[in-house]
Computed example of a mutant assay.
Amino acid sequence: MKSVSVFLFASIFVYVCGQNKYNNKYDNVDVDRILKNDRVLTNYIKCLMEEGPCTAEGRELKKTLPDALASGCTQCNVKQRDTAEKVIKHLMNKKSKDWERLTKKYDPQGQYKKRYEEEVQKQRTI
């Protein structure tokens, strides 16, 4: 379950491998099921916030997170982009305190957070 669970955050920040290409290993995981599992979500948030243990995947995610945020998912395939948007919306709407904590840690200037929030707002008006 833990290796599947890492997809939640991998879909937001997407694993970077090799030549700046994003890994599509987890593209077919049922992200809706993961988003409904508060325990798993909380464990990965704790990992990213350095408040709890991390799996190997969690440690890798922590390492690649800044680069993935900065890229704005430009190296994502369509599935990864759609999944990332779904996860971001979920965090913003259902776990807003955790969204704030994560963005403060990984985006202290707020430049990437603004971009993601504007994108979500655009989609709400469509």
Rank of each mutant, 00 (worst) to 15 (best):
K2Y: 06
K2L: 11
S3M: 13
F9Y: 06
A10R: 01
A10P: 00
S11K: 11
V16L: 05
N20H: 02
N20M: 04
N20K: 07
N23A: 10
N24I: 10
N24C: 10
Y26C: 13
D27C: 13
N28P: 01
D30Q: 04
D32R: 02
D32T: 05
R33C: 12
I34H: 00
L35A: 02
L35T: 02
K36T: 11
D38I: 12
D38A: 10
R39D: 12
L41K: 09
T42A: 14
Y44C: 13
I45R: 13
K46G: 12
M49Y: 01
G52I: 15
P53H: 12
C54L: 10
T55E: 07
E60R: 04
T64Y: 03
T64W: 02
T64G: 07
L65Q: 08
A68G: 08
L69Q: 03
A70M: 08
A70N: 09
S71E: 10
S71I: 15
G72Q: 02
C73G: 03
Q75N: 06
C76P: 01
C76D: 06
N77V: 07
K79Y: 03
Q80W: 04
R81W: 04
V87Q: 00
V87T: 07
V87Y: 01
I88P: 00
K89W: 04
M92T: 14
K94M: 01
K95G: 02
S96T: 15
S96K: 14
D98V: 06
W99Y: 13
L102Y: 05
K104A: 09
K105E: 06
Y106P: 00
D107Q: 05
Q109D: 10
G110R: 01
Q111S: 10
Q111H: 05
Y112T: 08
R115M: 05
Y116P: 01
E117W: 01
E118A: 09
E119W: 05
V120T: 12
Q121N: 09
I126M: 14
I126C: 11
